[in-house]
C-alpha cells in the first residue's frame, strides 16, 4: 500500500456542506486529513477557474459540495455549479488530467455522516488514481 495521501480541496457551500462538515466534527466522525475545506457562500460562486487553479497549485482532487437539488438557498446555484463542474471535467479530460479528479456532490446541512462518508470515499478514489499528474511532469522537466 502506498503512503500517498491525496490533497482534496472541497469547495463547501456555507448553507449545507460546510455545516454538514461541522456536524461531522461534532459527531466525532473522521475523514482523511488531506481533505481541505474552503467555505463558499454558495457553490454557484465557484468559478471553473477556482477548480483549475486548485489543481494547478497541487491539489490531487477537487470536490464541489452543494445543497441537495431543489434546496439551494439562492435557488439554482448548485445547478450552475454542477454544469460548471461538468465543463471543467471535459476540459480536464482534454488536457490529460482526467475528469474523475473533480466531482460535484450534494449534501444537506444535517448530513454530517454522509459528508464524512463522501469525503472519505472521494479521497480514497483519488488515492487510488495517484498524485496529480502535473507533479510527475514537473519533476521530469526539472
Amino acid at each position: 500500500m502506498s503512503d500517498f495521501e491525496p490533497v482534496v480541496v472541497v469547495f463547501a457551500c456555507d448553507y449545507c456542506a460546510y455545516t454538514a462538515a461541522d456536524v461531522a466534527g461534532r459527531m466525532n466522525l473522521t475523514y482523511p486529513s488531506g481533505v481541505r475545506i474552503l467555505r463558499v457562500p454558495c457553490t454557484g460562486k465557484v468559478e471553473p477557474l477556482y477548480i483549475m487553479q486548485a489543481l494547478q497549485k497541487g491539489a490531487d482532487g477537487v470536490m464541489v459540495a452543494g445543497c441537495l437539488v431543489g434546496d439551494c438557498h439562492f435557488k439554482n446555484g448548485n445547478l450552475r455549479a454542477a454544469a460548471r463542474v461538468k465543463r471543467v471535467q471535459t476540459l480536464l479530460d482534454d488536457i490529460g488530467i482526467g475528469a474523475d479528479r473533480v466531482a460535484m456532490v450534494n449534501v444537506s446541512a444535517g448530513q454530517g455522516a454522509k459528508f464524512a462518508e463522501i469525503a472519505t470515499e472521494f479521497s480514497k478514489k483519488i488515492g487510488e488514481m495517484g498524485p496529480n499528474p502535473i507533479k510527475q511532469g514537473a519533476k521530469a522537466a526539472a
Partner: peptide, 21 residues
C-alpha cells in the same frame, strides 16, 4: 479575461503533464 485565465491554466497543466512546461 476569464477564458484567458482558464485556457492559461489548462495549457500550464497540460504541458506540465507532458513534461514540457
Amino acid at each position: 479575461r476569464k477564458e484567458v485565465a482558464m485556457l492559461a491554466s489548462a495549457l500550464r497543466m497540460g504541458r506540465l503533464k507532458q513534461g514540457a512546461p
